[in-house]
Design a protein around this nucleic acid. Structure first.
Length: 477
DNA sequence: TTAGGGTTAG
């Protein structure tokens, strides 16, 4: 008994070292502990696995699993769930699936936690159809979905663009409650964020009112979501009121909350307060991240202080934040806005990575100063790279080419765009066919009982029989 | 000792 108590204390000590990322020290303590008679148990090793996943990587964590077995300690479901979580953090769906396979092979039954994490991994990797198949496997093995399962699916489908019936977000929440799976604060935050993401601000704010009226305690996630949405809408006074409320109810500010605040002040044009907050972050022992500085760069661009924005991007590069694509996009947009299109082109050419924002901003800037032929060349490169620009940017280039009598270029560009659209349509048909599965899940999720749903899905062609051990990987590869 | 929700740009 006393030995068990000592092991608990020993594990607490290891956990605190791991939390502070002092892995070498934790390992040394384990060796010293063994000499003194403290025998590490499965909790000790699981703590170490979690820390290696967080601070080093899943491969290093997996080697701990190996050492654990060598020491005669059998890994349990938490050991594997932790590794799957590590693979998810690094966005490695194949790896997480292999770990599930290994669990089954060594006779450890995956639980809801394992499946939820695995589904999240596939959603995070932009593969909702496979996440759906994981869900089917979960059902076929009689593992009951939990509230986390619902939240993972709602969030995953929303982030991968399958918003489905989210147009009726409040009804979804009501149906979830009626089905006996009461939504929790995470469900509310997820659905609210989905509304904001799809531009349904009114509905999102109604959900916020609803969760407050139902007595849910708002946490920093809820406040950040709402404050950010209000900032985007330009409703700064209300955003400020919630910032005050957050402080009043004693919610401490982490880096994401600080970034949200800085963004609100930038949107209001109060750059001085935004920079004061940056100092406050550093004084409080936190550290600004890529988001913090990107928000500041964008704020400076929006205020027309391009020189300061350029200086801040240089500061970011020198301070090890890397070159943020979002910050560069803000800068390109800002340079075009103040008429420095050549500088925008120089920056554009320097970028190794470009996206739709980069191209759209520069194309708009070029059209604004009637440099349609340059815009034509850049847009050709963009189409060839398979990047889609805003419809307004494409329209501006085509209209400009026609008005400047560059008919041959206009025709060529139109051909390219039509060809790409044709491919997109074909792709859309394929995606829709597979997407049926995800959509079906979504409809069933809120309309039918889980049991009925699972039985029904057993007859779907996409689920020809249950997944079997070793069979599951072959479905995905 | 393990999972799900929050912050940036056109």
């Amino acid at each position: 008994m006393s030995c068990g108590f000592s092991t608990r204390l020993f594990n607490i000590c290891i956990a605190s070292l791991c939390k502070a990322s002092k892995l070498e020290r934790a390992e040394a303590i384990i060796i010293d502990g063994i000499r003194l008679g403290y025998i590490p148990d499965v909790v000790t090793y699981n703590t170490l696995i979690a820390a290696y996943c967080r601070f080093v990587g899943v491969d290093a964590a997996y080697s701990v699993l190996f050492r654990m077995k060598e020491a005669g300690i059998k890994p349990n479901v938490i050991s594997y769930n932790t590794l799957i979580s590590g693979a998810t953090r690094d966005c490695l769906p194949t790896r997480s699936l292999d770990l599930l396979e290994e669990m089954l092979q060594v006779g450890i039954c995956p639980d809801a936690w394992s499946y939820n994490t695995l589904m999240h991994c596939f959603f995070k990797s932009g593969r909702p159809e496979e996440a759906y198949m994981i869900f089917l496997d979960m059902i076929s093995r009689d593992v009951s979905p939990s509230s986390t399962t619902y939240n993972t699916i709602i969030n995953g489908l929303c982030k991968t663009g399958n918003t489905g019936r989210l147009g009726q977000a409040r009804r979804i929440l009501k149906e979830l409650g009626e089905s006996g799976h009461a939504p929790n604060i995470i469900t509310y935050t997820t659905v609210m964020k989905c509304c904001f993401r799809s531009g349904k601000f009114k509905q999102g704010l109604e959900i916020f009112t609803e969760l407050k009226s139902k007595g849910y305690a708002c946490d920093t996630f809820v406040y950040c979501t709402v404050i950010s949405a209000l900032s985007k809408l330009g409703r700064i006074r209300e955003a400020n009121a919630y910032i005050d409320e957050m402080e009043r109810v004693g919610i401490g500010l982490d880096i994401v909350a600080y970034n949200t605040l800085i963004n609100a002040y930038c949107k209001e044009g109060k750059l001085d307060i935004a920079f004061q907050l940056l100092n406050e972050i550093e004084k409080s022992g936190l550290q600004g991240d890529e988001y913090t500085h990107t928000i500041l760069v964008d704020g400076l661009c929006k205020m027309g202080d391009i020189d300061a924005a350029i200086r801040h991007v240089r500061y970011m590069e020198m301070s090890g934040y890397g070159s943020s694509l979002v910050a560069s996009n803000s800068l390109i947009h800002g340079l075009c806005k103040v008429g420095q299109v050549d500088s925008a082109i120089t920056l554009f050419n320097r970028l190794k990575l470009k996206d739709s924002f980069t191209y759209s901003s520069l194309l708009h800037g070029l059209c604004k100063v009637r440099r349609y032929h340059t815009a034509f060349r850049i847009m050709l490169a963009c189409v060839r790279d398979g990047i889609k620009v805003l419809t307004s940017a494409r329209r501006a280039v085509l209209d400009g080419l026609r008005s400047s009598r560059f008919y041959r270029e206009e025709k060529k560009l139109n051909c390219y765009v039509a060809w790409t659209n044709c491919h997109d349509n074909l792709f859309h048909v394929v995606v829709t066919m597979f997407g049926f599965a995800a959509e079906h899940l979504f409809l069933s999720l809120f309309c039918a009982s889980w049991k009925h749903f699972a039985e029904y899905n057993m007859h779907l062609p996409i689920n020809n029989g249950r997944f079997k051990s070793r069979g599951i990987s072959s479905v995905f590869n």
